[in-house]
Computed example of a mutant assay.
Amino acid sequence: MSTTKQGNTPQMIANNLTPAYPTHPGEILKDEIEYRGISQRKLAEQMGLTYSVLNEILNARRPMTEKTALLFEAALGIDAEPLMRLQLKYNMQTTRKDETFMERLAQVRKIAAAL
């Protein structure tokens, strides 16, 4: 990723932008399910999930796993791998916004640089 630094905030260079808010794969799937007119309860039943688990994924309160991505692929015909890449990007962007973890990471970098 090409960035320039101003203070502690990386500034993005054109065509290499990070969205202000990460997109959870459940948000995309929720829109798709609504567009297709599919009931969440019916889809959950078809996938062998509880309604609450499916709803938590669709509302970004639960992560997409490899198994759930494959279940969505089977049920909706949406490739699992792009869903998992989206989940990874979501996880990474969310983690980078965790100030406590980023402070810890900075400390590890300082120690590693001294080795």
Rank of each mutant, 00 (worst) to 15 (best):
A14W: 13
A106E: 15
M84L: 15
E81W: 10
T68P: 11
I78N: 02
A14V: 12
I13S: 06
M92Q: 10
L70A: 15
I28K: 09
E45M: 14
G26H: 02
R96M: 05
Q6S: 07
P25G: 03
N91I: 02
M84A: 05
I13Q: 10
I78T: 09
E34N: 14
R96E: 07
N55I: 09
L54D: 12
Y21K: 08
A20E: 13
P82Q: 03
Y21A: 08
L86Y: 07
K97V: 06
G26Y: 03
H24R: 01
Q93C: 04
K89P: 01
P10F: 00
K97Y: 13
A114G: 02
R109H: 03
V53R: 15
A74L: 09
T100A: 15
A75D: 13
K5Y: 00
P10M: 00
P19H: 07
K89G: 06
P22T: 09
V53Q: 14
A60V: 12
Q107D: 12
N59I: 14
A20N: 07
L43I: 13
M47A: 05
T3L: 01
T68Q: 07
L17I: 12
V108K: 13
M47S: 09
S52M: 10
A44H: 12
Q87L: 02
A106Q: 02
E56N: 11
M64I: 04
K97G: 15
G77Q: 07
Y21E: 04
M1L: 06
L115E: 13
A44K: 03
T68A: 03
T18F: 07
A113H: 02
Q40Y: 03
K97I: 01
G77T: 01
M47N: 02
M12S: 09
I28F: 08
P25Q: 09
I38Y: 07
T68D: 06
T23F: 06
S2T: 11
L17F: 05
Q46C: 12
F101M: 06
A74W: 04
S39D: 14
I57P: 04
A75V: 03
L43K: 00
Q46P: 04
K30M: 13
L76E: 10
E73I: 07
T95S: 06
Q93K: 08
